[in-house]
């Protein structure tokens, strides 16, 4: 049984929206990392939820940096700490915009250079901090303020981009499964080199669902197979418990889509494409689990 530390590193005075799953998840990330860490935050919702100077809701050092610069800033920090012989953990907590779009170059560079850090992308599938504009991570059919008719392009597969850098550890997680997240952060931090966790973070105002449904929406993302929980340590893939269950018996995709106002314009054709993508992703994973690449 995993023991979750009682220490709190986020105080009860954040300016997060009600039902904010990225803040909920960050609480567990920090508990897993412990106090000897620096959190690097590019422009994203977390820039705001810390609170306004001179107060902060964070009880660990938080370094705010420009939108595209998180991974590079963390590279510098990590290099300086390692040079000093200090083990302080450097963790980036970045949104999907800062990860899959504007920050991708710096992210790729940091991974290619083998930077010793953990990069967590909390993915609320849009530019949340500026009021829900489309990002590369917004799914097909979702309404955002810059895709008022629904997005016509599918979600960018950032995980396969990061996998192409062959990092020692990469995993997905979901805010509705905090224990799974805690274990994955713990695992990641036990390894040296660049680690990546891609965390699905349902956003009540952005996805248009009631704040109290945050956990339910997250669980449905996993149960429908829209979001698959897995981890890959030194190349070896392992599907996490909730998704192993989903691979055996899936909840129909509609259950997930109909809870969210952002999918109200989705066409039948787009639904079918989403379903095909889910089937394909699950099949690929099932195939690899059955016959691991040598």
């Amino acid at each position: 049984m995993t023991e979750i530390p009682k220490e709190e590193y986020i105080l009860k005075c954040t300016s997060a929206c009600a039902g904010c799953s990225s803040t909920l998840s960050l609480r567990y990330v920090l508990k897993a990392a412990g106090p000897d860490m620096v959190l690097v935050v590019p422009a994203c919702c977390t820039s705001v939820i810390q609170g306004t100077y001179p107060r902060t809701a964070m009880n660990i050092p938080v370094y705010n940096i420009a939108f595209a610069a998180a991974a590079a800033c963390a590279s510098g920090m990590s290099a300086a700490y390692r040079k000093k012989g200090v083990k302080t953990r450097v963790i980036v907590y970045a949104g999907d915009g800062g990860t899959v779009d504007i920050g991708l170059q710096a992210l790729s560079g940091a991974f290619e250079r083998g930077t010793d850090f953990l990069y967590i992308c909390y993915d609320n599938e849009a530019y949340g901090n500026t009021g829900m504009q489309r990002s590369g991570s917004t799914p097909l059919g979702a309404i955002t303020t810059t895709t008022p008719g629904g997005k016509v392009h599918p979600k960018k597969d950032i995980d396969r981009i990061i996998e192409a850098h062959n990092p020692p550890y990469i995993a997905t997680a979901c805010s509705a499964y905090p224990l799974d997240l805690f274990q994955k952060v713990t695992k990641a931090l036990s390894l040296e080199g660049p680690k990546f966790i891609h965390l699905l973070a349902p956003c009540p105002p952005g996805w248009r669902f009631p704040a109290e449904k945050t956990v339910e929406v997250g669980k449905l993302a996993v149960k429908t197979g829209s979001w698959i929980l897995w981890e890959r340590e030194h190349g070896t893939l392992q599907v996490s418990g909730p998704s192993r269950a989903a691979m055996k018996k899936r909840v129909p995709l509609d259950e997930y889509l109909k809870m969210q106002g952002r999918f109200r314009n989705i066409t039948e054709q787009q639904k079918q494409e989403l379903q095909r993508n889910i089937d394909r992703a699950l099949a690929r994973i099932a195939c690899e689990v059955k016959q691991p690449c040598s």
Partner: peptide, 22 residues
């Protein structure tokens, strides 16, 4: 020195900032 062969100048300065603030 730790020499970081960054992938761009934007990252060069970001890395210097990150290192310096330690």
């Amino acid at each position: 020195s730790q020499y970081i062969p960054v992938e761009s100048e934007h990252s060069a300065m970001a890395a210097c900032i990150g290192a310096s603030v330690t």
